[in-house]
Design a protein around this nucleic acid. Structure first.
Lengths: 227, 227
DNA sequence: CCGGAAATTGACGGCGTGTCATGGGTCGGT
DNA sequence: ACCGACCCATGACACGCCGTCAATTTCCGG
């Protein structure tokens, strides 16, 4: 809230001693260098030495901050996940209809991806010919949160009682794959991508097999497999 | 066509000289070893040395067959893609309704994944905590084929005129992500997964924005940014 | 049976990895 | 202002992997 330094004996909240300051600085130095090197060489070809060389630090210092290049990658990826996850959750909490729930999820995601293409290109451009997607624990936690939100929406009667796990998986799959295509086109059209995905799911959810709904009036299509 | 050996001086079709036989054998030796080592150590941790050590061959020999561990990985992955791609294409060619088109795509894919979990687990179990998916050129070609099939289906009036690229991306995303969840559950239920995905797209496609329809009545939302 | 082509072998130089003893810089107490 | 304790950056080191290549073995055709 207040940006005014209190000038008490406890300025810890922002950056306590010089010790901790350089610690934060160095960490950021490494992360920034990594982002650049990953983008330049690709994740697979990058070595810890490449990262540290793009930094004024010595090789040993790297290991005071990260165990490996993979951990650096995770940190970068988690940064993104931590930035976007609360936004998505908040938006979904505000939703009072299926349409709002779905549309805000996709819109927020695609807009973020479009804005943050620095990070995102870094992340996607991994090897030469092959595309790669790595899901870090933080990202997976985001998926779980989506599933929980879906479960909540179902119990509030907002969604029909579909399989939340499968629906989550589908949304995730469409989000990432469509985002990829969106980034390939110029100019980026996050709104168009969101409209596409939203329409798909809005139409689709209605047709989805209802999981644990025993007292339904005669269903005509699907529903052949009631587990 | 004919499997009968002609007994001429040219039995090349099956396995000509000892030279070529061992060449095929060695290649297979390396691929098998790689499958095992990848599954055991994970892709990231595996070294070319690990692979060659799981083989009676010498280190130098490896490079007569593959440039790197990545190329081995591609070969394994491409093996799968080459096995499944024609099947998918054939099934889709037989489809005369949207429902058939979509359902056969998912059913074939999920059944294959479920059967072939040896390869698939190998492929997915890449690092320790992180999940990865690598799309090799052969796999990407499969995606392109799907897009072309969608375009064909649209021009035959089977599909409404949606954006084929985006629809392809969505199908791919759902297929892989739902497959992942399917493999996590015991027992595997490829039919259930296919029903879910099919229902989603059957309902969704109808609701999708129609791409190249210029004579639309007043558009209210979107379309603000016409390049 | 022999000469040449093709493929295998394993040792080698170069490099990345992760560790550790060393030393310089920082902090809290006096 | 000074000092001792502590923390952490440093870069050399031992080890292992990488990709290559000359020497050698294996195979083929004549």
């Amino acid at each position: 809230m207040d940006a005014t330094p209190m000038r008490t004996e406890l300025p810890r909240a922002v950056a306590s001693g010089k010790r901790e300051q350089t610690k934060i600085l160095n960490r950021q130095l490494i992360l920034d260098a990594a982002r650049q090197v990953f983008a330049e060489l690709g994740y697979g070809a990058t070595t810890v030495r490449d990262i540290i060389r793009a930094t004024p630090l010595a090789s040993g210092t790297f290991y005071n901050y990260f165990k490996s290049k993979e951990e650096v990658y995770q940190a970068i990826r988690d940064e993104v996940a931590l930035a976007i996850r609360p936004r998505l959750h908040d938006e979904r909490m505000k939703a009072s209809t299926v349409e709002q729930f779905i549309t805000c999820t996709f819109r927020t995601f695609f807009e973020y991806v479009s804005d943050d293409r620095v990070n995102f290109r870094t992340i996607r451009h991994a090897a030469d010919t092959t595309r790669v997607r790595m899901d870090t624990p933080e990202v997976i936690a985001g998926f779980e949160e989506l599933r929980e939100d879906i479960e909540g929406a179902i119990s509030k009667g907002l969604f029909p009682p579909v399989d939340p796990d499968m629906l989550m998986a589908s949304i995730v799959g469409v989000a990432f794959e469509v985002a990829e295509r969106m980034l390939r086109r110029e100019p980026h059209d996050p709104a168009g991508a969101a409209d596409f995905a939203t329409a798909l799911f809005l139409g689709g959810v209605r047709a989805l097999p209802h999981a644990q709904a025993p007292e339904l009036p005669a269903q005509d299509s699907v529903t052949s497999n009631a587990a």
